[in-house]
Design a protein around this nucleic acid. Structure first.
Lengths: 215, 215
DNA sequence: TCACTAATTATACACTTGCATAATTACGAA
DNA sequence: TTCGTAATTATGCAAGTGTATAATTAGTGA
């Protein structure tokens, strides 16, 4: 029998990488990219700093991986939650807007991360590509949904017009998302999703709030 | 006659402070708050680093001053440009939206600064106050303008409704401002102001594009 | 012209940073 | 059980950080 404590535990590579990435993200959210020092990351992941270099050959690599993880999680989460809604295109559009403006998508941490990474995104080509892809994905999906909603309502619009509508709706969503995260106390719970649905409805010229009534 | 070059030139306190603040802002926009080191700031302001401490007792103080300057400049600039427009409330609202979505208000540098400061804003009480005041100022002014536009059109709405409309319009403006600055190549010149005016019009239920025709 | 003073530079220090490299230790295979 | 190896820790280093303090220098008033 030994009462010696193991000095450390071995984990799988995936677990350790994920732990390091999550530690990085929480620190970036709090103090920005430069505030996420290797020592702070190691401490938060309950590991000594040397281990970081064992999994990521440089801090840059870790930060980039953390950004990819975060963006992918956000996109997947948003689409997954919105996809749970079955019903008319109109209901689905309303759900997508709502999900985008509620936690866990819309919350201070997410906005802080977005803001913290912006500098690096504008300089690093790989991160820039991720950023643009994420943006385009969301807007394309939004555009498809808007088209379906308009079809459903028997209205037809030109491609140019549809593109404008999608950009505008994306703008409202992003703007409200931003404000909700940057000024969390300025809005009542549920206020932003409500405003979002109403505004998107106004822009495309349909009332999204009136749910399809089917027992 | 002496061909000795003066080793430095004395400037007024205001000029030096302003130069240091501008150097700080450009560095913050490029590399974030932590990237704006005293040595880099000094170099960009064409000064040795010791001088910074002569005008600002700490780096924190300089950064806070730079933030205040930037936010004040942005607000003043927006309102000043919008105020140049004379005419109906509707025209003024349209002008405010346009100005907010065109350079020099809407440009990558401004968005980068906003993002870079966000972390500090959420932690530092003084900066937080500045942030909230700026936001409230803009939204209140927007709200007043919307009320005037609705009055002009012979429509009346409740205070609650007006508040919602202002928040929504502010959201579109902020969102488009953000996207224009974060993805400058994703939009054609003039595209965002157009979308902004159209969307704000849709939200409040009036066409802002049709100018008042009076010879 | 000549000090006097504040603006500016010069230098130094303690601390943090990312990265490298050596020394341990856990855990599976034999 | 023992042994090998990869995971993990321990230690060190050069460069960069903010700040403090002393040494210069420019411009002003007498």
């Amino acid at each position: 029998m030994s009462d010696e404590r193991r000095k450390f535990k071995r984990e799988s590579a995936d677990q350790r990488k994920e732990a390091l990435i999550q530690a990085t993200l929480s620190l970036v959210a709090e103090n920005g990219v430069r505030g996420a020092t290797v020592r702070a990351i190691a401490e938060r992941a309950d590991v000594t700093q040397g281990l970081i270099r064992h999994y990521f050959s440089t801090k840059e690599e870790l930060v980039t991986a953390a950004y990819e993880t975060h963006m992918t999680e956000m996109t997947d989460l948003t689409f997954a939650m919105a996809a749970k809604v079955r019903g008319s295109a109109r209901d689905q559009l309303a759900a997508l807007v709502r999900v985008s403006l509620e936690p866990p998508v819309a919350e201070p941490r997410a906005v802080a991360l977005w803001a913290s990474f912006l500098n690096k995104v504008q300089q690093d080509a790989q991160m820039k590509a991720t950023h643009e892809r994420t943006y385009a994905d969301f807007r394309d999906r939004l555009q498809d949904l808007i088209r379906a909603v308009l079809d459903e309502a028997g209205r037809s619009v030109s491609d140019t017009r549809l593109h404008h509508l999608a950009t505008a709706c994306n703008g409202v969503i992003d703007g409200l998302w931003l404000e909700g995260g940057a000024l969390p106390d300025a809005f009542a719970p549920g206020e932003l999703p409500g405003i979002g649905v109403e505004s998107v409805g106004a822009i495309i010229g349909l009332d999204l709030e009136q749910r399809a009534q089917q027992p």
